[in-house]
Computed example of a mutant assay.
Amino acid sequence: MSGFLTYCLQRFTPVLLLLAGVNAVNGQSQRLVHVPAGDYALGRKGYINNPLRTVHTNGFDIAATELTNAEFEKFVQATGYVTDAERNKNALVFSPGLREFRWLEDSTASWRYPNGITRGGIENKMDHPVTTISYRDAIAYCDWAGVRLPTLDEWEIASRAGAATTYFWGDDMMPLSTYANVWHGRDHLQADSTDGYMYTAPVGSFKPNAWGLYDMYGNVFEYCEGRLPTDKPDSRSVHARGGSWWCSKNSCAFFNSVDIGRVKRGASFSNLGFRVVKK
């Protein structure tokens, strides 16, 4: 019985602890989910970068959604911060018609114009996740806001919501469309808005996991802190998890709780953002 109670506490307690957390530094109101202390099974057998193991956490509070354009704009307005993409004019964006894993470098792209000026801005997308920002930009926001990025393990604990399967609902990918904004087309040569969105969707548009966390899969990749066993000692790469609106079952199917992506810390993609953890 004690094992069953432990399972129930790990799986359902965070739902009861959903709260409105107020940032002590800049007064930003963000919905947080408390993940209780405990031991959690992570990884998968045979995965070099994410082997099957049990990890312990002392508990943490993680944002229920990805950080939005509206929240990032508060930071920019308060500090005058200029992102890497705005300075370097080297953001990588997407437009239907590209072959798999091909992106366009667009000097006009930034968090205000995630896929370049010709593809529109964020005026009517303030509730969408902020994108086209680098790891350095994400850290700058966190330093200002008094929060931090989740570790690779924390992100996985939160995404699994007590489950030990590939997805937080099980091992069958079929229910994905109800939980995640992803690419449903066979390839990227033709536009795909099967689920109502070709690019990002407003945060919380799809069903949450059992702990009340939205968009853990799909919408945008999320920066995390941590290193992998295959990272070289002098590696400047960082990592992101969860997949994005660009990911499909045929290309980069990272919309799960196992896979871990790698990106250069100065890179800015229109399918990459973050959620925060309270310090």
Results as ranks from 00 to 15, higher is better:
Asn219Asp: 06
Arg44His: 13
Thr68His: 11
Ser110Thr: 12
Thr131Glu: 07
Thr166Glu: 14
Tyr141Glu: 03
Arg148His: 10
His34Glu: 12
Lys249Leu: 14
Leu98Trp: 13
Arg119Met: 01
Lys232Ile: 07
Ser2Ala: 07
Ser235Gln: 08
Asn115Tyr: 09
Ser235Thr: 01
Lys45Asp: 07
Asn90Tyr: 10
Ser270Glu: 08
Gly121His: 02
Phe60Trp: 08
Phe12Lys: 09
Val22Met: 13
Tyr47His: 14
Glu100Ile: 01
Pro36Phe: 08
Tyr47Gly: 06
Pro36Ile: 04
Phe206Arg: 13
Gly242Glu: 04
Ser110His: 07
Asn219Trp: 02
Val238Asp: 03
Ser2Asp: 09
Leu104Asp: 07
Thr83Trp: 06
Ala64Trp: 00
Leu228Lys: 01
Gly120His: 00
Ser95Arg: 14
Gln77Ser: 09
Asn90Phe: 09
Phe274Cys: 07
Ala145Gly: 10
Ala164Met: 08
Ile157Val: 09
Asp106His: 10
Tyr217Ala: 11
Ala109Leu: 01
Ser95Gly: 11
Asn256Ser: 01
Val258Thr: 15
Asp195Lys: 03
Trp169Gly: 00
Arg241Cys: 00
Arg53Leu: 09
Ser134Gln: 01
Leu213Tyr: 07
Gly185Pro: 01
Ile133Trp: 01
Arg227Cys: 13
Phe60Ser: 05
His184Gly: 01
His184Glu: 09
Gly162Ser: 09
Ala180Phe: 03
Asn250Lys: 08
Glu73Val: 08
Lys249Pro: 11
Gln77Asp: 06
Lys264Leu: 07
Asn58Tyr: 12
Ala267Asn: 07
Gly121Asn: 04
Val147Trp: 06
Asp137Phe: 04
Gln28Gly: 02
Ala37Gly: 03
Trp103Val: 05
Thr108Gly: 02
Asp171Glu: 14
Val238His: 03
Ala109His: 00
Thr165Asp: 01
Met216Ala: 10
Glu105Cys: 11
Pro233Met: 09
Leu98Pro: 11
His128Phe: 02
Gly226Tyr: 05
Gly21Ile: 07
Tyr197Ala: 02
Arg227His: 12
Thr178Ile: 13
Glu154Lys: 12
Arg87Trp: 14
Ser95Met: 15
Glu71Asp: 15
Gln10Met: 13
His239Leu: 05
Gly266Lys: 07
Arg275Cys: 05
Gly243Asn: 05
Ala145Pro: 00
Ala145Trp: 12
His239Asp: 02
Gly196Val: 07
Lys125Pro: 03
Tyr179Arg: 02
Val147Ser: 01
Ser134Gly: 11
Gln77Phe: 10
Thr13Trp: 09
Asp106Ile: 05
Asn69Leu: 04
Leu213Arg: 05
Lys74Ile: 14
Trp245Asp: 02
Glu156Thr: 08
Asp127Phe: 13
Thr83His: 10
Gln77Thr: 14
Phe269Glu: 13
Gly212Thr: 08
Arg136Pro: 02
Leu52Pro: 07
Leu104Cys: 12
Thr13Leu: 08
Asn271Pro: 13
Thr165Ile: 07
Gly261Pro: 12
Asn219His: 04
Pro114Asp: 03
Met174Gln: 14
Ala158Met: 12
Lys278Asn: 11
Glu73Lys: 11
Thr83Arg: 01
Ser248Ala: 04
Tyr81Glu: 10
Glu105Phe: 11
Ala240Pro: 11
Pro14Met: 00
Val258Leu: 15
Arg265His: 05
Ser248Asn: 00
